[in-house]
Computed example of a mutant assay.
Amino acid sequence: MSTRSLVSEAAARLREAGVASPEYDAAELLAFVTGSSRLHLSEPTEEQRARYDDLVTRRAGREPLQHLTGTATFRYRDLVVGPGVFVPRPETEVMVGWILDQLAGVPNPLVVDLCTGSGAIAGAIATERPDSTVHAVELSSEAALWARRNLEGTGVALHEGDIDGCLPELDGQVDAVVSNPPYIPLTAWESVTAEVRDHDPALALWSGDDGLDEIKVVAATAARLLKPGGWFACEHADVQGESAPAVFTATTLFTEVRDQHDLANRPRFTTGRRI
C-alpha cells in the first residue's frame, strides 16, 4: 500500500470514529512515526506501519492527538504534553497576542499567568518579550510537572498553589494578568468532546453550574495584583460572551471591560484595565 493510500485509509477510520480533523490527524501520526513532516511524508517500514496502525486505533478511540505524539505547538514554541495537563488550544494564542499588543509600549513588563497548566501562555510571553518578568501559578501538581519542563530556560517563575491569595508580594505592581481558567459549566457535560471530557484533567475543565466560579477568582486576583492601568485578559467559553465580562464589571474595579472574539469570530476572552 502506498503512503497516500495508507493515510487515506487511516483518515477514513478516523472520520468514521467522529474525529474532527481526520486527514490532518492521519498525516500527523504517520509523520510522527516516520520522523518526517506532514507535508513530506516518508515511506514507513513494516515496523512503523504496525506502530502507525496502533496509534490510529487509539486516535479512533478519541485519545487526543497531542497525547499520542507527546507534543503541542503553541504560537512559536513546541510544548510537551500528556495525561494530567490541559492541552493548549489555538484559540488561546489570540488572547496571548492581544495581551502582548497591550504591553508593546511597556518596558520590562511584570506579568502573571493564572492557571498556567502546561505553561503555554507564560512561556510564550517570556519568549516573545524577553525583557519581561513572568510568574505562573498552577494548583495541580501533575500539571506543574509538565509546566516545569516547558518553562525550563524561559526565566518564568513557577508557583504551585491556588490562585486565590497567590503572590501577595506583587499586589498592585503587575502590568498584566492573563488566564485560561476552568470555565466549562457542569451542566455542559454531554456537549464536551470525548478528547476533552475523557482526557483533559477535570480540574482544568469544570467550574460550577454556570462555569464562572474560577473566573470570579481570576477577577478578584487580577484586581489585587494589577497596578492602576494594568491589563487583564481571561479566556472563557463561547457561550459566556456576556456573563464573563459581567463578572469583571461587577467588581467595579476595572474599566474598558469588553469581550474579544477568536479567529472563528466566536466570543473567546474578556479584557479590561485596572482602575
Rank of each mutant, 00 (worst) to 15 (best):
G123D: 11
S21G: 00
D164C: 04
P88D: 05
I275K: 12
D101T: 13
L114C: 09
A20L: 10
L225F: 02
E128W: 10
S8C: 04
L65G: 01
H236G: 04
V85D: 01
A176P: 07
H40L: 14
A120G: 07
G82T: 01
S36Q: 02
D164A: 15
A124E: 12
T57A: 15
P201T: 01
L100I: 10
V94M: 01
F86M: 03
P228L: 12
D162T: 01
G272C: 11
A122L: 07
L139A: 11
E93D: 02
D78E: 15
V94H: 11
I184D: 08
R38W: 12
L263Q: 11
R13G: 01
F86H: 05
R197Y: 01
L139C: 00
A264Y: 01
T92F: 08
L167I: 01
E242M: 10
T57W: 09
T116P: 05
L151H: 04
R274S: 14
S141F: 00
A157S: 11
E9V: 06
G97S: 09
A264L: 10
Y183C: 05
E46C: 00
Q240H: 15
L145Q: 10
L30F: 09
D101K: 14
G117W: 09
E152W: 05
L263R: 11
P182C: 13
N150M: 07
S243A: 15
T3Y: 04
L79D: 06
T270D: 03
T116D: 02
I215N: 07
A233Q: 11
E91M: 03
V247I: 14
R268W: 10
T127K: 08
G119D: 06
K227Q: 14
L151V: 02
A250I: 03
R13I: 12
Q102A: 11
A188F: 13
S179H: 07
I121S: 07
E91Q: 05
G165T: 03
C234D: 11
P228K: 13
W146K: 02
D171S: 14
G97M: 07
T193C: 13
L186V: 10
K227P: 03
V111I: 15
A136T: 07
T249V: 13
P228E: 13
G153Y: 09
A176H: 12
D25C: 03
V247E: 13
Y24V: 14
D200K: 07
P201Y: 03
P168W: 12
V247H: 12
A104E: 14
G61V: 00
S21R: 14
I184L: 15
I163F: 01
D25I: 04
E93K: 07
H236I: 06
T69E: 07
D164N: 10
D162W: 00
L212Q: 04
R268A: 09
E63C: 00
T154F: 09
M95F: 01
P90W: 07
S243G: 08
V218C: 12
Q260R: 15
A50D: 06
A124L: 08
E9H: 12
S132P: 08
P44F: 06
W98F: 13
R38V: 14
N180W: 05
A220T: 11
A60T: 04
S118W: 07
S191A: 15
F232V: 04
D54R: 14
A10T: 02
G241A: 12
A204E: 02
A157E: 08
L110K: 05
V218Y: 04
Y183S: 06
L205S: 11
V218K: 06
T154G: 05
G161I: 00
R266E: 10
S132G: 10
P83L: 05
